[in-house]
Amino acid sequence: MNRAAATTGLDIVVEPARVEASLWRRLRFESELLCREQLFNRYRDLARAIARRQARSRPDRGVEIGDFEQFAYEGLLQAIDRYDPLRGAPFAAFARRRIAGSIADGAARMNEIDAQYGYRRRVEQERVRSLGAGESDGNALDQLSAMAAGLAIGLMLEGTGLIGGADRTDHRPNAYDSLAWRELQSILVRAVGDLPEREAVIIRQHYENGLSFTRIAQLIGVTKGRVSQLHRAAVERLRARIAADG
């Protein structure tokens, strides 16, 4: 019970080591699958730091940092599934080797075309496919505008700290736009908070943490196609909410 800056009653009483042990216990022995995402979130920065370090130490073959991060996340997820919390070794030490190994394997696996095509473009294509995958009701222009609105929502969500809510850089474009931007942001924040749990996980992990659909599929235990469907459903829900509140 050591508190640096407790502000709530719960802060006063929780013990960090027990909190983590509780996540492992509930994931392994009580089948609480949401604990997997919480453990992933706890160690995501570790995976990211290893990815950055490895990216710096390798010659540039066109592999983007985003690719390194995806390999690192893959290693982290494998580590979460293989770790035995009863054996006493700290998870970070166990995970570090798996993450580094996963990055090395992944980078070796990538061929030049993959590398040239680039992580960023693949992610964008995933989104376009997801958003454009609905039934073709209405005319082509309507569909295009719906897709454009979906992609715009993605741009707003992405990397703005919108979802995490921590102190991040202010991405508001300028003084004039900032009011409208802020209003829209607050609508989006509320709307993401109101999404069904699985859709919210997908939005958070994809836009805030940069996880590809493949990694999210591994994280929540569904197929990549299902993630794509849920992503589309979530973005549509957000769009409807903006239309109603905005």
Partner: peptide, 8 residues
């Protein structure tokens, strides 16, 4: 124990 484990 559960409270200190973050399970209020």
């Amino acid at each position: 124990f559960e409270l200190t484990s973050g399970e209020p």
